[in-house]
Design a protein around this nucleic acid. Structure first.
Length: 261
DNA sequence: CTTTTTCCCTGGACGC
DNA sequence: TGCGTCCAGGGAAAAA
C-alpha cells in the first residue's frame, strides 16, 4: 500500500468505525497517498499524506488479505481500493472485535501514548524499567504483563509462554518479582516474540498473513493451551486457571511459587 | 488510586 | 443432522 493512492474505502460494517460516521472516514481517506505503515503495540498505523492516520486494531480475529495471492476471506468488513491496482486490500474479521479510528497525527499520538507503555523489543524496555513499573503492584504478574501500559503488545499466549520460560508462576504478585526475575521475563518475552515473528505468528483459528498463510508458532507452544497435558520440560501435568479473565496455564514444578517476603 | 469483573462478538467444539 | 450450550480473548467500561 505504501506509495499508492487510496482511491476509495468501502466500509462494509459500520460498527468497525463507530462511534464516527463511516461516511466521514471514507471522505477523509479517499484520494490520499499512503506515506508509511507503522505499528505501536497492537495498533497498526496507516499514515496518509496531509496529517491523517488510519489506526487499525485487529483484536483476536482481524486480518488483512491481499488477493489474488490470498483467497478472498469470508468476513470482509472493509476494502481499500488502491489507484492503479485491480485487487483491493481486504480487512477481514469474523467476530467484529477489530476497530478503526481515523485521526490526525497529534490525536493519534495522544490516544496511543495514554494507553501504551514501552515496546517489548525496544531499547528502553529492560529489567530496570519493568521492575520499576511493577515492584509496587499487588496484581498478579500475568495481569501486569497483559496491561498494555506496563509493556505494549503482549497478549495471553506470549505472557503464558514468557512466565513459563522465566520459571515464574503467573499468579505471583508484582511486588514479589525481584530484579533478576524481571530480567528473565524481559529476556524470554523478547526471545519468544522474535521467534514468533520469524515463523509467521500464532494462528489459533482465524489469523492469516496477507497471502493467507497460517502462522507457525502454534506448534511451538510450551505452555499456552496445554493445561492437563504433560510439561514438555519436566513431564508434570500442567495446571490451568483463570487470571485477569484469561485462560492461564503453568507448570507447578518449572514455575514454583514465589516465596513470601 | 488499584484491581477485578463484565461485556462485546461469532465460529467451532461438544453433548444429546 | 440439528439444536443448544460453552468457550476463546483485547480492551473499554463498570464495579469493587
Amino acid at each position: 500500500m505504501v506509495g499508492r493512492v487510496i482511491a476509495d474505502v468501502e466500509i462494509l460494517d459500520a460498527r468497525l468505525v463507530q462511534p464516527v460516521d463511516p461516511r466521514d472516514v471514507r471522505g477523509a481517506m479517499r484520494g490520499r497517498r499512503v506515506e508509511a505503515i507503522d505499528r505501536r503495540g497492537k495498533y497498526l498505523l496507516i499514515r496518509l499524506e496531509g496529517d491523517l492516520v488510519a489506526t487499525h486494531h485487529l483484536r483476536m480475529t482481524g486480518s488483512f488479505a491481499v488477493p489474488p495471492k490470498s483467497p478472498v476471506p469470508t468476513h470482509v468488513r472493509l476494502r481499500y481500493l488502491l489507484a492503479e491496482r485491480v485487487h483491493p486490500v481486504l480487512y477481514n474479521d469474523p467476530r467484529r472485535f477489530g476497530t478503526l479510528v481515523v485521526a490526525t497525527m497529534a490525536e493519534t499520538d495522544a490516544h496511543l501514548d495514554a494507553r501504551l507503555g514501552p515496546e517489548p523489543l525496544g531499547a528502553d524496555w529492560d529489567a530496570t524499567s519493568l521492575h520499576r513499573a511493577i515492584h509496587h503492584r499487588t496484581a498478579p504478574i500475568k495481569a501486569l504483563l497483559l496491561d498494555q501500559r506496563v509493556v505494549a503488545g503482549l497478549g495471553n499466549i506470549y505472557v503464558d509462554e514468557a512466565c513459563f520460560l522465566a520459571g515464574i508462576p503467573p499468579q505471583a504478585a508484582g511486588d514479589r518479582i525481584t530484579r533478576p526475575m524481571a530480567a528473565r521475563l524481559v529476556t524470554h518475552v523478547r526471545a519468544r516474540l522474535e521467534e514468533a515473528i520469524d515463523v509467521g505468528g500464532s494462528t489459533l483459528r482465524d489469523y492469516r498473513g496477507v497471502e493467507g498463510e497460517i502462522g507457525g508458532m502454534r506448534e511451538r507452544f510450551l505452555a499456552y493451551g496445554r493445561a492437563g497435558l504433560p510439561c514438555l520440560v519436566c513431564g508434570m501435568t500442567m495446571r490451568g486457571t483463570r487470571i485477569a479473565g484469561r485462560g492461564t496455564t503453568w507448570c507447578p514444578r518449572c514455575q514454583p511459587a514465589v516465596r513470601a517476603r
